[in-house]
Amino acid sequence: MTSPTGSTAVDPAARVRQPLVFGGIPEAEGFARVPITPRDRVHFRVDRELPLEEFRAALPDRVAVSFDSGEGLYRVDGDPGQGSVLADWVRAWCAGRGITTVGLRAETDVRRRAPRDLPPSFLDELCRHYAPVSLKRLQRNMSTIRMHLPDSDDLTQQVYEWILKAVGQFDESKSVPFGAFLATQLSKWVHDLGRAAHGRTAADTENKQQKAVAAFLAEHQRRPSEKELAAYMGQSVATLRRNSQTVATLNGLRNLQSLDGAPDAAEILIPDSHEAPDEIMGEAEQTLLSHALTAACAPDPTARREQRAGQPNVLGWATWYLTTWGGLTKTQLSADLGTSVRNMNVHADRVERALKAQLAELVD
């Protein structure tokens, strides 16, 4: 059939996108085979890594555990109604082995599916399809991502983890395609990278300021003054200055190159104390102490990257530095970084153990 202009008309049915098929199973059917189900979940962190296999073997029947190495967060899932019982069980099991739990809480009616329950070929092809799609979608967030994942292999691995996370949260009953759901979640999870590394409040403050500056630039074609930015954000100048200090601290922590390098490889030359004036020696002592603190927060080269010890202890560094030299109390710092004092103490204790070894070497 031709149109009045002589061109061939296109059948509207031919323009409808055919459903995606993974492992011989249409996408919608694959999710329908393993529907999302409600459960009770216990979230917690610990002061040292759990013996996961031993912990998993001791769990009651029909209870599963997962570990988010990026956030250092354990999740125990059981049937609806088991939340408080599981929380008490986890607390008692850890206490019996001298392990301290941090931020343990029970959450009811969590709707999830386990990706491993999907047909393996279906899940494999779905991940292979959505990985390049996700990377293209994340191009607009790449400047933020590179602050946390500078290595391309790490970024690819993180994208696959996000796809699996989306598979676990996708509710097939809400008539939203999986691809659309994944796209909306990706931007949120990029923002969570900063929250996990530097605290929720600091990351949110930085994000709000960046958005306000970008909006002002688009409207006026110039950067705002301090007073203009405060008015644009509906804040007082004093509040803006306080928040700007939080953002400056966050950026300073990101720029600590020695945390990702090898601080012990750097040689520090110290003048002879008999020839140098007291003030120079005082500066040298401060340099040594700063060097030791930074080295104590560096990744453990013997640990795997996915382990907590294999990552820079930024929160521990901030806790020590800002409470020792920055004039802040732990309560004030906790409010600035949006994390609990208990969580700060866990990271600071790791620093203390490493710092004692660093200072012992300096004394020798």
Rank of each mutant, 00 (worst) to 15 (best):
A295D: 14
Y130T: 01
L86Q: 01
V237A: 15
G199A: 02
G168D: 11
L73T: 12
S244Q: 10
A284R: 07
P80Q: 03
R91I: 10
H291R: 05
R305M: 14
D264L: 12
E53D: 14
F122V: 03
V247F: 06
R137W: 05
L362N: 12
D364N: 15
P177H: 04
D204C: 01
R223A: 15
S66F: 13
A215M: 12
T331H: 11
K356S: 07
Y321M: 07
W93E: 04
N343G: 13
F31W: 02
S334N: 02
T2W: 12
D79F: 10
R62E: 11
F55Q: 02
P26N: 02
L288F: 09
R112S: 00
T101D: 13
L86W: 00
I36M: 02
H347V: 15
L337H: 01
A203C: 03
R33Q: 14
A266S: 11
Q257F: 11
L259V: 07
R45D: 10
E49D: 11
E283G: 14
A335I: 06
S290G: 15
G81Y: 00
K208V: 05
D40N: 05
G234L: 09
V167F: 15
V85N: 06
E267D: 15
Q185A: 12
V63P: 00
R91V: 15
S225C: 10
S290T: 14
P115A: 04
D364S: 15
I99N: 03
A87G: 01
V314I: 15
P277E: 02
R241Y: 01
K356D: 00
R137S: 09
L229F: 11
R308N: 13
V363C: 10
S7H: 12
D300W: 00
A202V: 05
V102E: 13
T319G: 09
F22C: 06
G338L: 07
A360Y: 04
H291D: 09
A309P: 10
G70T: 11
S225A: 08
G70A: 15
L73E: 15
E283N: 09
V110Y: 01
R105Y: 07
G23W: 00
H198D: 08
E226A: 14
K330E: 11
N255L: 10
T294P: 05
L362Y: 10
A212Q: 07
P312E: 10
R350W: 00
F44I: 09
A284L: 05
L126C: 08
E226L: 15
D88P: 03
A238P: 03
G234S: 04
P51H: 02
D47I: 03
L86A: 07
L186G: 05
A95P: 12
S69M: 10
A64S: 04
R112W: 00
Q169C: 08
D40S: 01
L322E: 03
A354E: 06
G70H: 14
E267S: 13
G30C: 13
P38M: 05
K136W: 09
C297Q: 07
P263M: 15
D336C: 04
R350L: 04
P4H: 09
E219F: 06
V110L: 06
I145V: 06
N207P: 06
E53C: 13
E29G: 02
S175W: 08
E361F: 14
R56Y: 12
Q139A: 07
L359M: 07
R137K: 04
T101L: 14
W89H: 08
A360E: 12
R112H: 05
P119K: 02
V341H: 01
F22E: 03
E279Q: 05
A266W: 09
R33F: 12
R62G: 11
K227N: 12
